[in-house]
Write a protein that binds this DNA or RNA. Structure first.
Lengths: 228, 228
DNA sequence: AATCGATTTTTGACTCATCAAACTTCTGAT
DNA sequence: ATCAGAAGTTTGATGAGTCAAAAATCGATT
């Protein structure tokens, strides 16, 4: 099989991430979701998915959806690896802002060689997560997938550590950055108000911040590390 | 005008470099040279050059050749800037080898944003030349073009500084690296032998090295800096 | 000046990725 | 059980970039 075009890489990545986002383990991504993730019309996604199926990268069930094969999963994970290492590199080494590296990495991930990516991995000390807290797959495509709670489900008035932000929107990330809500930060949920559709969170030394519930669901938290 | 595809960027870059390589200032690049530089058949180059002419990036004279317009020159210079800054960055910051950065930069130059390139430029201290001694155009596409001598034309038994290597071939660069013939090195030509088709060069503390005349023409040298 | 050979252009075809719009299938509500 | 609407698929077309091979042009040599 020839090297996958960046279009193929993007389809695989989108399918992979859509599979991850599903709660149930049916793992069948509907065409509509895939098409809108890739900003193409549904017919385009159908066509492309059929050719991916012919290459053995996905299994395609007409009118039902698509899922990655083992081969597709591995390729997708390696694309994600390139993306996330690149993001971390741009933040840590190049000094770019947390909020702007996603789009940059979106293009660089298709241009960087494995040599470069491995060099970056080494420079960064084989990191486990990228600047958004997303786990970085290893060279074999294996990836830790811890199950975090969200700001909607974690205990109230209890210290938790912001572990991961599952949205790459630049404006959202900028807001978080300005609010000092970045991965690693210890925070606590002061209250949730269903009527107001918000949660109030506060980091040590900061004012409390109201976050809409839709946004709060994108902030994943872990129990604080054992103190001492 | 929409942003140029990487194909367009590559054509402009190739025309620019072919113009530079010409001694006379006719500056008309024949289609055949362009086609082989880009590894396409001549017909493909003709077709593409005509569309470039329609965009006002080149002036095309059928059966004669092509030259860049001012707009094309500026765009080409900015591509070269991205390429050369990227190469230097990969060597200086990422620690890749002199010999392997060309191909990497060849792809990254089309993916890196202006923000990233300017950030790299700043990190590196607004450098004037890349690892091969090639001058780096500034943000406006302006570039210093010093006129060096080559190992074929410089005075014999006189110290000169290796300033620039006008060939990006990986194997050739590896050879130079192993022979300690890298830009900045002070060397002297011991002899030239037309019959043997070689020149003998020696760097301080090294053995003398025989270099074929074709290769020697690719090594550009400058007078040594005023000592003191 | 006529011609041969090299260079260049033209023509027709192909692949990849895409869209618009017609058509098909599925599903949930009655 | 039907059927309306949502979701998905098919069809036909497009644009970018390419090649192979036929045709045209140029130019150097006789």
């Amino acid at each position: 099989m020839a090297l996958p075009s960046s279009t193929v890489e993007n389809y695989l990545k989108a399918i992979y991430q859509a599979e991850m986002a599903e709660e149930d383990d049916t793992r069948l991504v509907p065409m509509g979701r895939l098409a809108s993730a890739l900003h193409v019309v549904p017919g385009t996604a159908t066509t492309m998915v059929k050719t991916l199926a012919d290459s053995g990268l996905v299994r395609y069930e007409p009118y039902a959806g698509v899922r990655l094969t083992a081969a597709g999963q591995k390729l997708a994970a390696l694309v994600l690896r390139r993306h996330r290492l690149m993001e971390l590199f741009l933040v840590e080494v190049v000094g770019m802002s947390w909020a702007e590296v996603h789009d940059e990495a979106e293009r660089l991930e298709h241009a960087a060689s494995d040599r470069l990516i491995d060099r970056i991995d080494e420079m960064l000390g084989r990191p486990a997560v990228d600047p958004h807290g997303d786990p970085i797959p290893d060279q074999d495509g294996a990836m830790a997938t811890p199950r975090y709670q969200t700001l909607l489900t974690c205990p109230i008035d209890t210290a938790v550590v912001l572990a991961r932000v599952t949205d790459q929107d630049t404006a959202f990330l900028r807001f978080l950055e300005q609010s000092h809500l970045t991965p690693g930060k210890t925070i606590r949920v002061e209250s949730r108000d269903a009527a107001a559709d918000h949660v109030l969170v506060r980091g040590a030394g900061d004012r409390s911040i109201a976050i809409g519930m839709r946004a709060a669901a994108k902030l994943l938290v872990a129990p604080p590390p054992p103190s001492g």
